[in-house]
Simulated scan of single mutants.
Amino acid sequence: MVVASLKFLTEMESASVPSHEHSSTTWSNANSSSVRAKCDPAWDHLTEELKNGKCSYRYIHCGKVYEGKGINRMKGHLAGIKGDVVACTASYDPGYRGRNYHALRAPLLREAKREVQLIVDSHRSYWADTGCTIMANGWIDTRHRTLINFLVYCPKGIIFIRSFDASDLVKNAINLSNLFDEIVDWVGPANIVHLVTDNAANYVAVGRILCGKYRNISWSPCADYCLNLILKEIGKMDHVNKLAKCASKITVFIYNHVALQAWLRTRKNWTEIVRLGPIRFATTFISLGSLKEHKHDLQALVTSKFYVESRYVKDKKAKAVVKIILDNQFWNDCHVILHIVSPLIRLLRIVDSDEKPAMGYVYDGMYKAIDGIKKNFKDKKRLREPYVNIIKDRWDT
């Protein structure tokens, strides 16, 4: 890394001054050498020595001594660039020998494993005193294998304990509960107070089986997973899906035409529109919120002299986009949906954050989300019920 960075610095310095300007910059280079000597990172690899009244420099890595050489030539030596100076023969301490293949795959691997085991053992001593939570995270890797990761949380921190390949396993409640039983036995049933999984039907059944077998264990669904499923279900509702498609048409149209982007970027306090993401369900609503913030800018664009006199006016797709932008009902519907989901998105951000424990905020946040929906629709039970039912079905599993 040292060699690569110094080589890059040397090349940058030589490329920064054209050849025909070298003579004109000689005086300024000499004049600024004292400043440069203090700030150039190459000096960190040299030690200054005084011998017979003359200044010389010793390279830390190879031990060679040079007298009166410029910093560029010294960097050339360190970077191994052949030329006026001999390339440095070492990037580390003199006599250092790199580890061979056997050392890397046998002794070093055993040593690394021993260090990890010590860390795990230090956490295990806390489990009996404070209790712990088992967390299971299922996912599919790039080779399409179904993997289940098991982690243990306690106040000291989180420890990864096992990854199980469940590709060939029938993931029903019985098979999964047997797998979870192995993890419970390894951690110690008396040390476990909480089990967290997603809220798929088979995992819910596993939670019931384990809670019935071990009375000291309670089960709860993963808050992050539940919130994403709630947002996914709300996003599938016909009117919400229609709004998302309209929003997508606007952003695609704007970002497919450079002239329109250039005009919008001249607007005061303009920020880029957040576009829809393919994975996280919250991005649908974040994109709607971003678009709503730009409502007046977009309406100013399609009613401006620049746009009216442009070639876009006669385009069929452009006309459809303009119709959406000038439709007040579209913006009113966006406002209502954003008012409904904003507490859920705020809660999702809290849950995803590692800055502070989120458990104290989760239940209060879900209560406020449901209460906010009821207040938003007031006495219109028919309108609020679909949203409330989605939240309750996913959260009260």
Rank of each mutant, 00 (worst) to 15 (best):
S28Q: 14
S353Q: 09
V184F: 07
E11C: 09
A300G: 12
G70Y: 05
N269H: 12
T47N: 10
E115N: 05
N269Y: 14
E13V: 15
T47E: 13
S19P: 13
E67R: 08
Y126S: 15
L347I: 05
W263Q: 03
I325N: 00
E21F: 06
P189C: 04
S24G: 09
A190L: 06
L229C: 07
N191M: 08
R143Y: 15
F160T: 09
K75G: 10
A201N: 11
L195R: 00
I60G: 01
M135S: 07
I350P: 01
R280G: 03
K316R: 12
D371S: 14
L348Q: 04
V120R: 13
N149E: 06
R143A: 15
D238W: 11
K75F: 03
L6K: 01
V85I: 08
I279H: 09
N137C: 11
A128Q: 13
A223F: 03
S24I: 11
D352M: 05
I134Q: 00
F377P: 02
S23E: 15
A247C: 14
G365H: 00
V302P: 04
D44Q: 07
G138C: 11
K75N: 10
K7A: 09
L210Y: 00
G372C: 06
G138A: 12
S163T: 13
I217C: 04
F330E: 01
D354S: 13
L260W: 01
Y387W: 07
K375I: 03
K374Q: 15
V65S: 05
C55A: 13
D84C: 05
V196K: 00
I234L: 08
K69P: 00
H335W: 03
V313C: 08
D185Q: 15
S28D: 08
D185M: 15
E272V: 05
K82G: 06
E111D: 11
G235L: 13
A87P: 05
P221L: 06
E13G: 10
D121V: 10
K268F: 08
K245W: 07
I350T: 13
S33I: 11
C211P: 01
Y101A: 12
A37E: 10
V313R: 14
R267I: 03
W331L: 07
P278F: 03
R105G: 02
D165I: 05
Y361K: 05
S304H: 09
Y387R: 07
D165M: 03
N191H: 14
L276Y: 10
G80F: 06
P41S: 10
R58M: 14
N216Y: 11
S287I: 04
Y92G: 11
T397E: 12
G289M: 03
R280Q: 08
N29R: 11
I279E: 13
Q117L: 06
K368M: 09
S33A: 13
Q299Y: 09
A90C: 08
A247L: 01
N241I: 04
F253V: 04
S28N: 11
K295L: 07
D44P: 00
V120P: 01
E355K: 14
R36T: 14
M359C: 10
S56P: 01
I159C: 03
L179I: 11
G80N: 09
M12T: 13
S5Q: 12
L118D: 15
D121E: 15
P357M: 06
L227E: 02
